[in-house]
Simulated assay, not measured.
Amino acid sequence: MTDGKSADRDTVALPRPRSGRGSAGPPRKAPRKPSRNRLTGRAGILALTLCAVMVTVAYPLRQYLAQRTQISNLKHQNQVTQQQVAALQTELNKWSDPAYVAIQARERLHYVRPGETGYIVPNLSAGSEPLGIPTPTQQAWFDRLWSTVKSPSATPSPSPTP
């Protein structure tokens, strides 16, 4: 290791500092301080291009997504309508049967066959007016009106309206 060749390899020649007075080269510029917001021209063009692409694509993408949503809603509405059509078709098939029509006429319209006696039993628990007939009031409307003309200071007693 005391070999002369290995000593030459281990030593590194360092450049000598130049002094500005006697040197023959151009004067050195002072090193620039790195700035924080240093933006190159390429980066600016790239940013501008990306913004332009985003603006160009934003509206059509929004329209595309809105149309997809509308198509989905219309498909759902179509399925619901198809189910309603199927239910109405089965109801129509029922009405083509004469026995079903006779049963519905008896239940809904209270039809009876010749020789039968029909009875209607009012459901008194459903309301105060049996069979949908309104109950008469104590005084007719024109009598109540005339009583207000005869004595305007007296207020007519409230009565149930038909």
Rank of each mutant, 00 (worst) to 15 (best):
L124Q: 04
P158K: 00
T137S: 14
A66P: 01
K29E: 09
V121T: 13
V101W: 06
S125T: 13
Y111W: 07
A47D: 07
T90F: 10
N123S: 05
N78E: 02
F142D: 09
P152F: 11
P98T: 01
A58I: 01
K5S: 13
A86Q: 08
P27E: 12
T161Q: 07
K75N: 09
N93Y: 01
A154I: 04
K5N: 11
R68Q: 15
S128Q: 06
A87E: 13
A47Q: 07
E129V: 06
D8T: 01
P60V: 01
P130D: 11
L61E: 06
L131H: 00
V55M: 06
L46V: 07
K33I: 11
Q139G: 02
P162L: 05
Q104I: 03
Q77M: 15
I71Y: 02
A43S: 11
G118F: 06
R113A: 15
H110S: 05
I133P: 06
R42S: 15
I45W: 12
S159M: 14
I133F: 13
S72R: 06
Q138D: 15
Y64A: 13
A58Q: 03
T137H: 13
P27Q: 12
A102Q: 15
Y111T: 10
Q79F: 07
R28N: 12
P34E: 13
R18N: 09
E116C: 02
N78A: 10
A105S: 06
I45P: 05
Y111S: 13
P158L: 00
T161Y: 09
A52M: 02
K29S: 14
L48G: 15
C51Q: 01
T155L: 10
A43D: 10
A13P: 10
H76A: 07
K33Y: 14
T81N: 13
R16A: 15
D97F: 00
V57Q: 09
D8S: 02
P136F: 14
A99I: 00
P98A: 06
R106G: 03
A7Y: 07
V121A: 14
T56Q: 03
P158M: 00
R108W: 08
S128P: 10
D10M: 12
V12G: 12
L124M: 07
A99N: 02
R28T: 07
Q63V: 04
G127P: 10
A7V: 07
N73P: 02
N93V: 00
P98C: 04
